[in-house]
Design a protein around this nucleic acid. Structure first.
Length: 92
DNA sequence: CAAACTATTCAGC
DNA sequence: GCTGAATAGTTTG
């Protein structure tokens, strides 16, 4: 567990539901604007992949990067989150 | 401490 | 749109 990793986790966990951010964005928020490479590495080897919404972290252009469940599932999750968000906003 | 690896991003064609 | 190269931190020896 490295300090930078902690920041990254914090940032990733701070991503609102239905929102997707890029590795670059996370890295910037983590304090290392040019360390998106490391962000991916950390998330890949992160000690708790389950508590980390890695599916909200994507490469760019809505293209999901990698995930334990598989990139395909992750992509679906992105769309699902969008629906969830609508559901929450529309849960009148 | 150094080398290798990586879930990426940018630039060129 | 695809391929190649660069960057920055983690991990392992």
């Amino acid at each position: 567990m490295t300090p930078f990793a902690k920041k990254v986790y914090r940032v990733v966990l701070s991503i609102p539901l239905g929102q997707v951010r890029t590795y670059k964005w996370v890295a910037q928020k983590a304090g290392r604007p040019g360390a998106w490479r490391a962000v991916g590495t950390i998330l890949n080897k992160n000690p708790f992949p389950v508590i980390i919404p890695c599916h909200r972290v994507i490469k760019s252009n809505n293209i999901s990067g990698g995930y334990v469940f598989g990139k395909k599932r992750k992509k679906e999750l992105l769309g699902l989150e969008g629906r969830i968000k609508e559901c929450l906003a529309n849960r009148k």
